[in-house]
Nucleic acid binder design. Sequence first.
RNA 1: GCCCCUGUAGCGCAAUGGAUAGCGCAUUAGCCUCCGGAGCUAAUGGUACAGGUUCGACUCCUGUCAGGGGCACCA
Length: 545
Amino acid sequence: MSKDIQQELIDLIAYCLKDLGWAELYPEKISLEFPTDRRFGDFSTNLALKLSKLLKRSPREVAAELTACLSKEISRSELKALVTQVKVEGAGFINFYLKEDYFYAKLKEIITRGKAALAAEAKADKKVLIEFVSANPTGSLSVAHARQAAVGDCLANVLSFMGFAVQREYYLNDEGNQINILGGSVSLRRKELRGEKIEFPENYYQGDYIYDIAKIAEELRIKEEELGDFAAGHILKIIRQELLDFGVHFDCWYSQKELAKSGKVEEAFRRLKEKGYLYEQDGALWFKSTAFGDDKDRVIIKSDGSQTYLAPDIAYHEDKFSRGFNWLINLWGPDHHGYINRIKASLAAFGHKPEELEVIIVQLATIFRNGQPVQMSTRRGQYITLREVLDEVGADAARFFFLMRRTSSHLDFDLEIAKKQSAENPVFYVQYAHARICSILRSSPEGISQEPDLSVLKEKEELNLIKKLLEFNTTLTICRATCDPYMLTVYLQELSESFHKFYDLHRVLDPDKNLMAARLALINGVKILLSCGLELLGITRPEKM
RNA sequence: GCCCCUGUAGCGCAAUGGAUAGCGCAUUAGCCUCCGGAGCUAAUGGUACAGGUUCGACUCCUGUCAGGGGCACCA
């Protein structure tokens, strides 16, 4: 198929707007969407409702006039072969009803071109840097990091599928106060293991893993002053492996230590000073972030001469732009929401548009077991780790569960449900649909016909299923617009449901050869979509379960 | 005190400002000579409260109430 009918109809609506002399009144993009209910046609626009206010006329009247023009234009174009009628319904919606041939053609496109029929045709115009996890290398990843990892990786997959150039980056806090404390913690534990009496400060790392590192450091005779770097390096290896086992990879590990060495921090200070956004007070150096809407100015160099966390971070975000990225996405935990304004302020100070940085706050996940929250305490080094979740439920269920709620909402993650192999567990529901299709295809006496006559697919469930397939792209558009991949999990559950309903009422392996060929093609189309969606989520597509 | 997130059916959730607010669990009543019953069909039941914006509000704005998280010259 050349141009999609949706775009053709939008073009036609734009033409009619011009024809009626309304085009200038309505410069916005014309929206033509799947209606909320299948009864209201196959495409729908609320344009007349929007126009009615501008024209000061009743919506239905405006809709009728627009519809008359549209009908006329459709009847003299090639669209008349696919559009059965254009109707004004409800408050003033204009609904387009399409012939089934249109859906057969779309299905055919999917089964002949596969995933390529769904992916972006052209490269998108933005170079995206998505920074996520970025946990300090001072301990194993927590479930909070795990959720960020799942969301960030999946969002990157989706944007990449939609044609954006995407880079995944982990900002590595490999020097500074926390690394010093880590080194101090290992040092004390090593002394303790040697039999010395020690006093372990409360703000030091309490977890048992510090003993493990201390033992290794003792064996390797690591020097006292190198303990921090040694421990951070050791933990980083563990973090990398945890992420790999979770199916998350990064294109770039951006070292704060390297950034500090590069002189970019001083360069950023110099430029800010030049612009008059730095000043000294109480022996500290302040960034005038209030000039850009922050609540208060922020210290970047403390009175003791050391930098705050904000200092390298300002330079880091400026560096993202100088590396050629023009869409920055940061995934942060809810404890960082106060940082949004100050980082955006720093970007504004450098002359960037604050909206080029999108900060997604990934809300916390609470782990439940049999309906009871599992208690945790980071202070004592007792928190639930990504590793524990992976060991218990596996990467597939973990990824799906972390993704299945709106990212900005709290998430309850019940380990027992994630382990269940039943309908209660949505990831199994979706994977089961995929496996079931594979099973049918295996037991089919014939292969998939290259030229099936799809027009024999006349049952309600068959047409619903095809229409559901076409909603995939809308789902991706929503994911992009909201910077949130969770809608994909909802879509896959709905698609699986449509498939199970079809399956229950109609036999694929029907004695009628033509019908069987068409239904095999249909379920193959469903398989392609399920497979593509699961791949974007980073979840396996089992052929048998 | 200030900031962020969340209040939708008994429970867990969905609904890119749109048409009769959807789904799962639970409860109740059904469906297996048959491609995987890990499934399907029904019944029951709902937008925290008070204003406002809009042709139209679960959705946006203001206030109230309730739950969770955060408010350093920490990272």
